[in-house]
Design a protein around this nucleic acid. Structure first.
Lengths: 190, 190
DNA sequence: TCCTTTTTGTTGTACCTACAACTGAGACTG
DNA sequence: CAGTCTCAGTTGTAGGTACAACAAAAAGGA
């Protein structure tokens, strides 16, 4: 019990971590500000995007939680908020009485379409623009490496193996026999 | 007005951004959980660390804001909270009647010392462990590239040029003639 | 069938953060 | 010195998020 992992980090490690920390502090707020004109947050955009890409424009809350890397509790509240703005509807799931589907409304689809450009521009301007192809590749690899340590059991959509993991537009055959009424996805955040 | 920057991103870009987004969502919470045993948040640790490294264990609130990439409003509240826990004291600045110094107390020093190992371990386990030296270097470079776009005027400590930028343990001669009574640092967050 | 466990959400509570309005102290001008 | 401007911090308010306790449905066992 005398040495424990050395208490301090190397200088270059500290620099890297400090910068990452600054990024964690600043980027979310900055992204949110870019989407403010559309009346939604960056997280809400991700949610609308997940619904847009989903079969039947609907997804179970637990599936949404997995896609958006959020807690079910958080998701429930955000969906309630989006419901008040008429961007999303709730509908009970026919197949499973416990489950609830979140469904993108027409108004939600409109807002998503409007904010998609806004979001893409923001992402380009604040993240991608200075990076060459190698940089993008490194960003993906590094992020994945860290995420893997945060989610070793690969319960999240981002760390899931397979082509549909992060951003594929819909995964038509994700669950074998489920009809569009109940979008499935067994994984959840916590 | 017919083409606007192409509305969608390339697949590899979307993957990288989605992963980064997941990181922004998950890492802060995960880090906070690691520090919970010490009774402070990751942000509070950064604040204590900044004070610990500062000359005379004191820093003006605006300087702290710059170091921690936070708003002055936020900082004011966090310092109040730390004051209630006796980890930090407030003292008016002798040189400038407007300014307030935050001073690390002995108890604060103790908590910092205790949580430093906790934090270093967490950072290693959740961020650094899977990365080789190239990875660390890429992380630093990528983060800096993005931060530069968020803070083009280099008002923040992380993006400041010079050796004291991110993590140097104290910068003894930061301000030419200021005595330890009033730690200076003209830059602020907003 | 009855009982227990797991899964899916929901909600009470507490805390944290952003934004904007505000106070008080220097600085600068005439 | 009055008037104005800027700077440093504080605080009201609103909204977001986490954690834990909860209810209801489904699954699994004896």
């Amino acid at each position: 019990m005398s040495f424990m992992s050395s208490p301090v980090l190397r200088y270059d490690q500290r620099v890297a971590v400090a910068r990452l920390h600054a990024l964690l502090e600043l980027l979310p707020t900055a992204l949110d500000k870019e989407l403010a004109p559309a009346g939604i947050t960056s997280f809400e955009f991700t949610l609308l995007e997940a619904l847009h890409e989903a079969d039947g424009h609907r997804l179970r809350l637990s599936a949404l939680a997995s896609r958006t890397n959020a807690t079910l509790a958080r998701l429930s509240r955000v969906v309630t908020s989006l419901e008040r703005k008429d961007l999303v509807m709730r509908a009970p799931c026919e197949e499973d009485g416990r489950a609830t589907n979140a469904i993108l409304t027409d108004a939600g689809e409109t807002v998503f379409a409007e904010s998609a450009g806004l979001y893409a521009d923001a992402v380009r301007r604040m993240i991608l623009d200075g990076l060459d192809d190698d940089g993008v590749d490194q960003l993906a690899t590094l992020s994945y490496a860290i995420l893997s340590k945060l989610d070793p059991e690969r319960r999240l959509a981002v760390t899931a193996t397979g082509a549909d993991s992060a951003v594929c537009a819909a995964d038509p055959s994700a669950t074998s026999e489920s009809d569009p009424e109940c979008a499935a996805d067994p994984e959840r955040t916590q």
